[in-house]
Design a protein around this nucleic acid. Structure first.
Lengths: 152, 152
DNA sequence: GCTATTTAGTGGTATATGCCAGTAAATTGA
DNA sequence: TCAATTTACTGGCATATACCACTAAATAGC
């Protein structure tokens, strides 16, 4: 029975996390499709808006993303005119990530679709459960958790 | 306060999921590094072992992964001699995914490292919480959840 | 003030993952 | 039995994400 009935995701938290990510991103992507944005891109645009004119480094840290990965991920958004990288005046190493007006409009347009998706999620999974789940996930994404893990 | 203090991950379950995935995969990858496998590859090898000689399609469904995505992801593992695709005798469309002896050895070798990572996770996050989290994630990854979401 | 070190980004390469179009094999239906 | 449909897989292209090596700029130490 063991080998057949139990999947890695029943045992490995990371597998479970990635597997759930694939499914949920799929579901959100389907809802977002009319906007032409994927949920990853919408999240990024939203966070860029929230963070004002954060530097690439700052944004990468917030997103818990590798700096170069963020750079690559931004490329399509820059190409499509939603995002701009503005060199900092004081520190010439730094580039600030900004939404263009077009990007802001696009984010707003997609927001309605995202709300739809989020609502469906909460209807299916439960509002309280959703809130609790996000909190759990945000603990895992935090730097204190990473420290704890590394020292455990 | 709003814009600055709250990240997308505080609002969007999908963002929270992906962000936590990035961090956790990172942490597991670091522990697995000596084996030369990433946690994604280890998970796949483990599931292939568990599933016996499942077809690509079956495995993709189990992993909640696109069929072609699975094919792509297997390529490095096939190239390195850990996995083999064996054509089915009865249905010539079907290919069965099998671990080679080398792949079995590699998975076993990495298992010790994975156990270390999993143990650290449970020490940092809590054993009961980990179990509960996996259950939650597996609900989200399930097909009944997808149906519920789509009909919500 | 100058050198050593640290910090921020870029570009290349590799894996992870999805969509679409195409092919071949099996199955269904008249 | 044979054409229409469905199923399983492949290959090409695109995004997501990481590592590494490299460059340029700032900063710390002396």
């Amino acid at each position: 029975m063991t080998k057949q009935d139990i999947g890695v995701w029943d045992v490995c938290t990371n597998s479970a996390l990635r597997r759930a990510s694939r499914q949920l991103s799929q579901l959100y992507d389907d809802v977002l499709a009319p906007s032409g944005l994927k949920i990853t891109q919408f999240s990024l645009l939203s966070q860029i808006w929230r963070s004002g004119d954060a530097s690439l480094k700052t944004l990468a840290d917030l997103m818990v993303m590798d700096l170069s990965a963020l750079g690559h991920t931004l490329k399509p958004l820059i190409r499509d005119g939603y995002v701009e990288l503005v060199p900092d005046r004081n520190d010439r190493r730094v580039k600030r990530v900004e939404l263009t007006p077009l990007g802001a409009r696009k984010q707003e347009e997609a927001l309605a679709l995202w709300t739809e998706a989020q609502t469906r999620f909460e209807k299916s999974y439960g509002k309280a459960q959703s809130d609790a789940l996000r909190k759990s996930l945000n603990i895992i994404a935090g730097s204190s958790f990473a420290d704890a893990f590394r020292n455990a």
